[in-house]
Amino acid sequence: MAVRQGRYTLTFPSGPVIAGSAAVIRSKGTGPRIKAAIIGRIQDMGIRDANNMGAAMAPAAYRTITDFLHDTNTLPENYDMILTGDLGSVGSKLLCELMKENENIDITPVHADCGTMIYDLEEQDVHAGGSGCGCSGAVVCSYITRRLREGDIGKVLFVGTGALMSPVSTLQGESIPGIAHGVLLTRE
């Protein structure tokens, strides 16, 4: 759907990303390595605006990141990067705010978002950033894995985000639930 919105007259709050990516995961070999994984839980904080998907997904990312930090008994400082999928600039701010308000944890120094990384927000005029699962795939499978391989960063908690949005339920005035699953990527 995102692709088709490309040529409609009205401007959209984000730039659709059309990207494909694939990763081969093996039990042996050299890094980057998946050290841990977490299955997220659906979160719904009543966001009804289909043009504000970042806000709809941020609580899910918050939940998954918090659960992961609790489960592993770690702090944001223990990671080189906490990377989210396609929250965009608005969703990212909300995620950091939720972490601060609820858990008193500041993730801003290590937080990054694929949606805001894939475009140059100033130059390319994409408003809140890129949207769609292509953001995560393209950024993680190229830029992030390369940086891990080169040893520039060593430990990345990557949390892919998704909005469980159906155009029909949005028209019926239902809220948009979000989901986020995470993997811990390490150099070795």
């Binding site: 904080m45 009543g46 966001i47 504000n52 806000a55 609580p59 608005v90 701010k93 909300l94 705010e97 939720l98 308000e101 609820n102």
Partner: peptide, 16 residues
């Protein structure tokens, strides 16, 4: 979750 749904709605509105 400490932030309630309505509080979150306000937060989202403020930041957007």
């Amino acid at each position: 979750m400490a932030v309630s749904d309505s509080e979150y709605g306000k937060m989202a509105k403020k930041i957007s």
